[in-house]
Design a protein around this nucleic acid. Sequence first.
DNA 1: TGTTTTTATGAAAACGTTTCCATAACCCAC
DNA 2: GTGGGTTATGGAAACGTTTTCATAAAAACA
Lengths: 324, 324
Amino acid sequence: MASIKDVAKEARVSIATVSRVYNNPEIVSKKTKEKVYSVAKRLGYTPNFLAQNLKKSVVGTIIAAIPDMSNTFFIDIVLGIQDYAESRGYNVLMGRFDPEKFNISKYVKIVKSKAADGIVLATGHNRYYETVAEAEDVPIVTIEEEFMSKPHIYVDNFEAVRKVIDYLLSKGRKRMAFLGYKTEIERAKAFELVMKEYGLEYDKKITWKCDEREEEIPAQTKEYVDLLMKKELPEAIVCASDLLAAGTIKWLAKKGVRIPEDVAVTGFDNVEIAAIFNPGITTVEQPRKSMGQEAARMLINMIEGHEIAKKITFQTKIVIRESA
Amino acid sequence: MASIKDVAKEARVSIATVSRVYNNPEIVSKKTKEKVYSVAKRLGYTPNFLAQNLKKSVVGTIIAAIPDMSNTFFIDIVLGIQDYAESRGYNVLMGRFDPEKFNISKYVKIVKSKAADGIVLATGHNRYYETVAEAEDVPIVTIEEEFMSKPHIYVDNFEAVRKVIDYLLSKGRKRMAFLGYKTEIERAKAFELVMKEYGLEYDKKITWKCDEREEEIPAQTKEYVDLLMKKELPEAIVCASDLLAAGTIKWLAKKGVRIPEDVAVTGFDNVEIAAIFNPGITTVEQPRKSMGQEAARMLINMIEGHEIAKKITFQTKIVIRESA
DNA sequence: TGTTTTTATGAAAACGTTTCCATAACCCAC
DNA sequence: GTGGGTTATGGAAACGTTTTCATAAAAACA
């Protein structure tokens, strides 16, 4: 409640001096400083961010926009963003957005009205989005997808899928199936390409793409397993996420199929459930926290007008558990 | 970049009029309004939040402080908070905080410096925290714990535990054990009281309290199961969280114990893993999203100076799956 | 001691709004 | 027309800061 004026009056100095005590302490005399500090403490004075920022025209807040807050994948990214942002004195505003509708204008508006300085956009989809005119001069860093040639963080999905296939081959599995999502194209494409490159056949009929809504996963994996049971089982199933893998394993086990003896199953992302599921799920881990940190670093540098890289590629690592 | 001044000059009206076009459109003539709108659009004018708020002394941002972002429980609460906040035109700033250290002063400071209007605090612990002087006149709503007689959202853990015990009794299980956390007192206490009330004996030696750090759970549940195997197995184990239940089931299954035939296991919270685990975990669900919404509603009303309730109690419901 | 340099402080403008108060413009009735 | 009552607009203060410029006080030097 107390303003700089109150402190100034009480300490019998000008408001300019009080301001300097907080912003350029070195140029004000020790005596004055002590007087101001003690008065400020007594009055419970905290500089008003709004007024400071109005003057400086910097807010100190960045937005992390993610599609799904109940997904560890995105949460870890946000954790990384927060970690780094904090070290630079920025706050993080978290928001949801729908990758289908790509409704970022809400966030663009927030930045334009100076309630935030920039946006980290994570969709988890490797798409190429269309230009949004208003977003032209808004600082944005994207993770995974590309957008208006804004700087972005890229994860090498091809390399990741190759690692999985290599591992399965080393275990003697050749007949592989792929279970992915309708909207995530890169992993499916990578699977196809790597298989072709290795000269391996795979049955397109047992390669399926799910709707991406999480609540649909139990039903969809069940349907998928029912389909599989009617055909000859593959030796391995590569899933585009740990949840798909978990669902698939669950239904296969119910049919009496032994994992991994009869069928090996792999996931993607290494979320919490991969470790705790029974059997533990072999999966691919992206350095999520580092990705978030790097995104925040790029964004803040961009906001503060420094030079930054246009694209940063992260490598993945395979985490071997019991399911494959 | 364009300010209200630019628009006013270009539209040949005063800045007061431009301001009114956005805040009291009904009192400005149609002709003027149209002129202003068209100029504003051409110049790409968006009112500057900072200046608006400085004047109005309201920010339009609330903080959701939670201990663990990778826990669905808290994420759902935040989802509820966001949902409601959005409907009232507020943004949500998400932050972590350590329930052990109770380091809320960071957030109190943000509010005091007018970068946010208030705080929703969710710890998931039913503790009574000590007074923090600076937080005196800061709008805060807590979920679960009590703090400085700030308004709070309460979940009826006693009733919840009673429901679990009733259900287990109805299945003929009498010898029950409890696996909880060191810091969460209410569920453990409720278990003890209800058992006593029903005149049921329970072996204190097989009631254990874990460290609450999530990464410790696999190791701690393993240790617990090892301990159990040395004694006579109980007929049922009531766990204070789904993760504890999942860990316990996993290790019991590895020892060849059949769930639920030999031992029934129940969880708490109904997070994602409870549904997807094999076997599905019988658990207790709190209306998390509603709790978040209600917390946001209380907080915003508090911020805007309306009358609010001091305490709101939510009921739980039991979700029956395969583990019990 | 008087002059110059350094250091510490204050006055006031500026940031982009909202809003109170005053006034100009209009309309209608007489 | 003149007057009384609306209605639409402008001027200017205020919100709480930062910062430039000017000046007073102190220190350094001769």
